[in-house]
Every structure is written in structure tokens, then in C-alpha cells.
Design a protein around this nucleic acid. Structure first.
Lengths: 339, 339
DNA sequence: AATATGAACGCAAACGCTTGCGCAACAAGG
DNA sequence: CCTTGTTGCGCAAGCGTTTGCGTTCATATT
């Protein structure tokens, strides 16, 4: 079928080992022979079989990437950036889309990446068993989502600081009834919703605002969930004048709910999101921005570094900057008159 | 390190070949032995090395997926759906993110998928050389984006019908100055923008509207591009009263441009998009919906079928339904008075 | 009872690379 | 001129599977 290393060796008149060394830049080959080999290899369109070379060397030059939902903006963006880093370093990426419990379970029991990847980047938080399974692979591990786990190097953001800036912004605007749309219903070990909720409660307390449980609703990190949650909040006996959504997608759902109720942001209720989604600007959403692509790229780089320097102790936790970006969905509450 | 097939064989007291046959459901193993092998394999946590088995068998149980931009909604959604189909069939997916010309070039010259995949799903349109390179792999090929290529089975939509319904909608509303934001600047062989443009021109002609070149602008299929394009159109001596954007992302960019100009849709200008993006509903965008995830899933299924029945002639082209979904960014033109 | 027929299993040869080791050949050092 | 290195290359043993073929043995066939 396609040319093998022996075909090249034969054509050049050297042994297969020399071809192997020459093509991979290993020492022990004269420049002259190396050039001839390169020429013949190019002419024959030879590429080493990955299966064969990884079987022989143990290195796969492949990274496993675990993602809950490839289709969602956040994960897609992280994946995009990470893939670029990996591929320019000569690594391929094996993608596992582990959104549903079944596929997730299947993955962790069969562990199809065993002996197949040199490292894994997990965009989901593994529970104890799952992370033990991953550690059993004996390869470097990284994740870009909240919740540090032993054996993983995690790159993330300061969730507390981020939500504090968002909620304080609302407080400073004069809001007292501040709702929150959270995403608590996710898997366990996923600390982000909890961190953000705690920060939310802290800011309220610090502002002397009493917490009202009727002002919290679960939006499941989706647009539809955000819409449902906002609808729920609007049905409260005393609805909020402002809401903090733990993700832009939920915030957008909230905006949709407002529109359905013939209410407007920020006139009737202020809304602030989290992420700085690609389309947040389109809808004028005030939000706390996090460097999503950069997190993916950085996690990828850290993984590659671990592969280059097997000895070195990998960084445990790196934090990326966040910042509040003010747009048009937040304003002072109305009841007290215009401006 | 991890258990090999010989470890299992030894533990059970049979040969490696029997273990191999047993675990893969091949005939020639008694039920009793098969059960014992399964038990021991499970206990030892044995999983066959993919490198070794694909080297030996030639089958990789891996599909290569080529994507221009994983981070964009359309591609992310297609990928998500396709991956699900592949993974439930026991196939892994190798992801190649080929957005930039360099990575794309590198991919097609080095062809890292050679001997590494059983099939490839391309979410980008290869040019002649590229598609020849892919065909040289000798595996089934499919694509989900416009522009049929020899050797590929393509699943897509009727671009003509889709844009006709969109533009006719604007015509029926009474618009005469109808602009278009296209994405012509993409790679060659990408027939979608051309198809859509032709359909746009045809509808105008059929309505007796003279075509005005100043009413067309390139939006590059991005939000920013759409914004630029709309800005450009608004600067025309006689701006459009309605615009058809070839993608929802460009349409959203257009909406943003309108907002920046203190104009409103549909009051000042009607906007219709294409795709039915996840967030089209949030911004109330009228658009022509296409079944994005279904296209990915269907393409994946067709590929798998070709792997199952190597003899059969694969379908060349399958078309999925589209439909116009009316929301709030289209209305009759204003000049003629209210309603 | 002798033979044919399968079923169940083992042997050993691939699959296409990588890599430790050995062996020339040649340059430099005494 | 004989060592001692060094450089350039080939040999051959893996890496962990799959699979064609051969062997054994129990069962069915005449």
C-alpha cells in the first residue's frame, strides 16, 4: 500500500534504523546520508506509521482531551486553543465527548486512552474514582475547570474575585434585591458553582443585605435553564431588581425571559453574566470576562512542558486574570426615580 | 506496567490468540473459556493496546475529523453530534483543527492520519490537491459542508431553497432594497456562499428588483465581519431597508452595528440570518434553520455504514430539510408609514 | 469400527517501527 | 606505528497484537 520504512531504506541503500534516526533528527547519521534519506522519503510520500512507532517507542505523540460538551462555547473555545498548541508541537488530539452519564461511564471503565496518549487534558472534573482511573494511566494530567484534584495541574481563574466584582458592581449601583442564577445541578467535585455562590453570599453580607433564598434559582448552565430560572425569580413575591448569572449563557436566557415578560434590562432588572461569551457584546451584556482560550492554551503548554521535562515537579495551580466588563444590562434600580 | 495480553493468557492458562479471540467475540472459543478470560481480563484491568492491535490488524477504530474552527458554534455542534455517533459505535475521534493556512498546509503535506484512521469526516472543503491527498488514504470520506467532491459522500442542505425562503420573506414584506452580507472570502471550492448569492440574485430578479452591487458586503462568517459589513452597507448612498446575512453570526454582527448606529431591527432595517444559531432566539433573530447536529450525526452514520459494508456504493449526496423561522428582526419597511 | 467433520485451541509469522549493542573506518594523541 | 576515541552505520531483538494454518480431540456419519 503506502511506503514503509524499509522501502525508503532500500531505495537509499541504507538500513531501516538509519532511516528512522535520520528522519527523527537523531544523531549518528552523516549529513549527506540524512539529506538523501529526506529526499527519498519526500519523494515516496513516506510517513512513519504512528501505530508502529508508538508500539515500539511507547510514545504516542497524542493527547487525550476530555470534554463534557464540545458544542458549548466555553468548551469549544478551550479545546480550540489547546488543540492549536498541541498540534504545533507535533501532537495529535484524541477527543472524547463525555456529556452524558453513559458515555462518561463507558469511558472511565473501558479507559480507551490506556497506552494511547502521552497526557490528558480534562475539561471536566473527575470524581474520586475517575481521577484515580486517570492517574492509573501514568501520564501527566491537567484540567481547566475549577476544583483542584491530586495529580492534576489545574489552570483556572479566581472565581471568588470574579463574582465579587460582579455582585459588588450591582451593590454599588444601589441594588438591594440581588438574585442569582446558578448552576448547582452539575456533577460533584465541580467547585465553581459553590465558590461563586459563597462569594455572592459574602458580598451581600458585607453590604448588610439579608439573604433571601427565593432569589436563587438553578439555571443548569444553559440558555434554557437561565430562562426558566429568571422566570422563577420573577414569580417571587418580591422579585429582584438585579441578577447575577453564573454564566453568560444563563444570563442570555435570563434576558430572553425578561423579553417574554415585556421587561427590559437594565430598566426593569439589571443582569450581569460571567465568561464574556463571544456574543455577550452583541446583546450588550455586562459580564465578568475570563480568558477562556488562554486557559486552554496554557493548560496545553503546561502539559507539554511536563512531557519535555519528565523529572520536574509540575505546577499545581495557575490562576488567570479576570475583569468586569461593563456594558448595557446594568444600571441603578428604577424605583428611586430616574438616574 | 499495565497488563498485556500474555499476562491474561498466562493467568487463565490459555494462549494469547485465544484471549484475543475471546475478548473480541470471535468464534473458536468455548463459552466456558470465554467467560474465564473475560473475568480475568476485568480483574487485571486489561485493555488491548490500540497501537499494537491496529498495527497487527490494520484497523484503527479511529476516525479523523477535520474542522476549521472548533470554537465556532456551527462546527462545534456538528462535531459534538458526530463524536457521539462515533464513540457509541466504539470509534475514537482524532481531531484536527485546521483553521489557519499553516496548520492546514502542514496537515495535508504530512498527512498525520495516514495509517491512523479508518475514515475521515471533513468539516472543511478540501481543494483539489487536498482532496486527492485524502483519497490517497484509501478510506471512506465524508463532509457536511457545501460543495460535493469526488470520492466524498456529502450531507448538507439545499442552500438555494434556504436563501430563497429568506429573501422571498423580505420581498413579501415589501422590501425593495435588500442587502446581503456574504462570506465570499473563504477558501475556494466552498460553494455555499456562491449558491446563496445566486439564489439571492434570482429572487431579486424574479421580483423585478434591480440588483445594486453597493448592497453586498463581505462578512467573513464572523460576528465582527458582519458588523463591519453592516456598517459598510449603512454608509451606502441609499442604504438597504433589509438585509439577508448568510450566517447567524454575521447577522448578529449586523444587529450590533445597528445598535451602534442607534438604529433598530426591524424598525429601521430588517435582518434575517441563516443557521438558527443556539442564541438566535435570544436576540429574536429571524433566520432559516438547518439541522446542524443532525447533519453531523448523519455524516457519521454514513461513514460507519461504509466501514461495515466495504463493498456497497456509498450515497453521494444527502440533503436535510431547512425551514424559515420567523422572529422579531423582520417587518415591513418603514417609509410607507406605520404598519 | 473406521472415517469424516467440526469445534477449540496453540504456533508462529507478520505488522512497521525503535533502540541497545557491535563493528568498521578513520582521526587524533602518544 | 600502535593505541584510544569518535563517528556512522547495520543487526537483531523487541513492542503487543492479530490471524492463517495446523493439531488435537470429541462427536457424528457410514
Amino acid at each position: 500500500m503506502t511506503a514503509s520504512i524499509n522501502d525508503v531504506a532500500q531505495a537509499v541503500g541504507v538500513s531501516a534504523s538509519t532511516v528512522s534516526r535520520a528522519l527523527r533528527g537523531r544523531p549518528g547519521v552523516s549529513d549527506e546520508v540524512r539529506d538523501r534519506i529526506a529526499a527519498v522519503a519526500a519523494q515516496l510520500g513516506y510517513t512513519a506509521s504512528r501505530s508502529a512507532s508508538s508500539l515500539a517507542s511507547g510514545r504516542t505523540y497524542t493527547i487525550g482531551v476530555l470534554v463534557p460538551y464540545v458544542g458549548r462555547w466555553f468548551f469549544g473555545t478551550v479545546l480550540d486553543a489547546a488543540e492549536k498548541v498541541f498540534s504545533t508541537a507535533g501532537y495529535d488530539v484524541l477527543l472524547y465527548n463525555l456529556g452524558s452519564p453513559e458515555t462518561r461511564k463507558r469511558f472511565f471503565t473501558k479507559l480507551p486512552v490506556r497506552k494511547r496518549v502521552d497526557a490528558v487534558l480534562s475539561l471536566l472534573i473527575p470524581d474520586d474514582d475517575e481521577s484515580a482511573a486517570l492517574r492509573s494511566l501514568g501520564v501527566p494530567l491537567a484540567t481547566t475547570v475549577g476544583g483542584t484534584r491530586p495529580g492534576f495541574t489545574v489552570v483556572g481563574i479566581d472565581d471568588r474575585a470574579g463574582t465579587e466584582s460582579a455582585v459588588r458592581h450591582l451593590v454599588n449601583l444601589g441594588h438591594r434585591r440581588i438574585g442569582m442564577i446558578s448552576g448547582a445541578s452539575g456533577p460533584l467535585h465541580w467547585t465553581t458553582p459553590i465558590e461563586r455562590r459563597n462569594a455572592y453570599l459574602d458580598v451581600l453580607a458585607e453590604a448588610g443585605i439579608e439573604h433571601d433564598a427565593a432569589l436563587e434559582a438553578d439555571g443548569d448552565y444553559t440558555v434554557e435553564g437561565g430562562e426558566r430560572a429568571m422566570t422563577e425569580l420573577l414569580a417571587a413575591s418580591r422579585p429582584p431588581t438585579a441578577v447575577f448569572a453564573q454564566s453568560d449563557e444563563m444570563a442570555m436566557g435570563a434576558l430572553r425571559a425578561l423579553r417574554r415578560h415585556r421587561l427590559k434590562a437594565p430598566d426593569d432588572v439589571s443582569v450581569v453574566g460571567f465568561d464574556d461569551h463571544e456574543l455577550a457584546d452583541v446583546v450588550g451584556l455586562t459580564t465578568v470576562a475570563q480568558p477562556v482560550a488562554e486557559q486552554g492554551a496554557e493548560a496545553a503548554r503546561l502539559l507539554l512542558r511536563q512531557l519535555d521535562e519528565p523529572g520536574a515537579e509540575p505546577p499545581r495551580h495557575v490562576q488567570m486574570p479576570i475583569r468586569l466588563v461593563l456594558r448595557e444590562t446594568t444600571a441603578p434600580p428604577r424605583p428611586r426615580g430616574p438616574q
